[in-house]
Simulated assay, not measured.
Amino acid sequence: MTRPADIYLRFLQLTEALRGLPALPALDPLEEKILEFVARTTQKSNRLSVRDMMAQSEIGSPATLHARITSMREKGWLTLSDTEDARRKQIELTPAALKHFDRLAEAFAKAAKGP
């Protein structure tokens, strides 16, 4: 019988293997947290502006968040697009970032099936 912990540990092994694939540059732990926040927000069909992101004080200070968003854009994980208000930019995942989440989902499904 497979325990839930076994599935999760297999998933971690598979995600570690994904990190070795040549795709996008690696993220630091804070950038991973930001990526997950952006993904969860946009999955709910909510728009996320840079200003909205800066208000997430539980993730980091505005200066830290701004620096990480800039870094993540340079690494190819995030993009900024214009909104109706030229002063506001919307944060979006790049196609490569979406493919990363697809690979994670595939790894999870594979882990759940068993060895």
Rank of each mutant, 00 (worst) to 15 (best):
residue 1 M to T: 11
residue 2 T to A: 03
residue 2 T to F: 04
residue 4 P to F: 03
residue 4 P to M: 00
residue 4 P to N: 00
residue 6 D to A: 08
residue 8 Y to R: 13
residue 8 Y to W: 13
residue 8 Y to H: 15
residue 8 Y to C: 13
residue 9 L to E: 14
residue 9 L to W: 08
residue 11 F to Y: 11
residue 11 F to R: 05
residue 12 L to H: 01
residue 12 L to R: 02
residue 12 L to I: 03
residue 14 L to I: 09
residue 14 L to M: 12
residue 17 A to M: 10
residue 17 A to I: 11
residue 17 A to H: 06
residue 17 A to R: 09
residue 18 L to H: 07
residue 19 R to Y: 08
residue 20 G to Q: 05
residue 20 G to I: 07
residue 21 L to D: 04
residue 21 L to I: 07
residue 22 P to M: 06
residue 24 L to Q: 05
residue 24 L to K: 07
residue 25 P to C: 03
residue 25 P to V: 02
residue 26 A to I: 06
residue 26 A to R: 12
residue 28 D to E: 08
residue 29 P to A: 02
residue 29 P to S: 03
residue 31 E to G: 14
residue 32 E to F: 08
residue 34 I to S: 01
residue 34 I to K: 00
residue 36 E to Q: 11
residue 36 E to G: 01
residue 37 F to P: 00
residue 37 F to C: 04
residue 40 R to I: 03
residue 40 R to W: 01
residue 41 T to V: 07
residue 42 T to W: 03
residue 43 Q to D: 12
residue 45 S to K: 07
residue 45 S to H: 09
residue 48 L to E: 00
residue 48 L to R: 04
residue 48 L to W: 01
residue 49 S to K: 00
residue 50 V to A: 12
residue 51 R to H: 08
residue 51 R to V: 05
residue 52 D to S: 03
residue 53 M to L: 05
residue 53 M to F: 07
residue 53 M to I: 02
residue 53 M to Y: 00
residue 55 A to E: 06
residue 56 Q to E: 00
residue 56 Q to A: 02
residue 56 Q to M: 05
residue 57 S to Y: 04
residue 61 S to K: 14
residue 62 P to L: 08
residue 63 A to L: 10
residue 63 A to R: 06
residue 63 A to E: 07
residue 64 T to A: 13
residue 65 L to P: 01
residue 65 L to C: 01
residue 65 L to Y: 02
residue 66 H to A: 13
residue 67 A to D: 09
residue 68 R to K: 13
residue 69 I to Y: 04
residue 71 S to G: 09
residue 71 S to F: 10
residue 73 R to Q: 15
residue 73 R to A: 14
residue 75 K to C: 03
residue 75 K to Q: 04
residue 75 K to W: 01
residue 76 G to A: 06
residue 77 W to N: 06
residue 77 W to P: 07
residue 78 L to H: 08
residue 79 T to S: 15
residue 79 T to L: 14
residue 84 E to H: 13
residue 85 D to A: 09
residue 86 A to T: 10
residue 86 A to H: 06
residue 86 A to R: 12
residue 87 R to C: 11
residue 88 R to I: 15
residue 89 K to T: 12
residue 90 Q to P: 07
residue 90 Q to V: 15
residue 91 I to N: 01
residue 92 E to S: 15
residue 93 L to C: 10
residue 93 L to G: 11
residue 93 L to N: 10
residue 94 T to H: 03
residue 94 T to S: 06
residue 95 P to Y: 07
residue 97 A to Q: 10
residue 97 A to F: 02
residue 98 L to S: 15
residue 99 K to Y: 13
residue 99 K to A: 15
residue 100 H to G: 05
residue 101 F to N: 05
residue 102 D to E: 11
residue 103 R to S: 14
residue 103 R to N: 13
residue 104 L to H: 05
residue 105 A to I: 12
residue 105 A to F: 11
residue 107 A to W: 09
residue 107 A to Q: 08
residue 109 A to E: 13
residue 109 A to R: 13
residue 109 A to M: 15
residue 110 K to H: 11
residue 111 A to H: 03
residue 112 A to L: 09
residue 112 A to C: 09
residue 113 K to N: 05
residue 113 K to H: 07
residue 114 G to V: 09
residue 114 G to F: 06
residue 114 G to P: 02
residue 114 G to A: 02
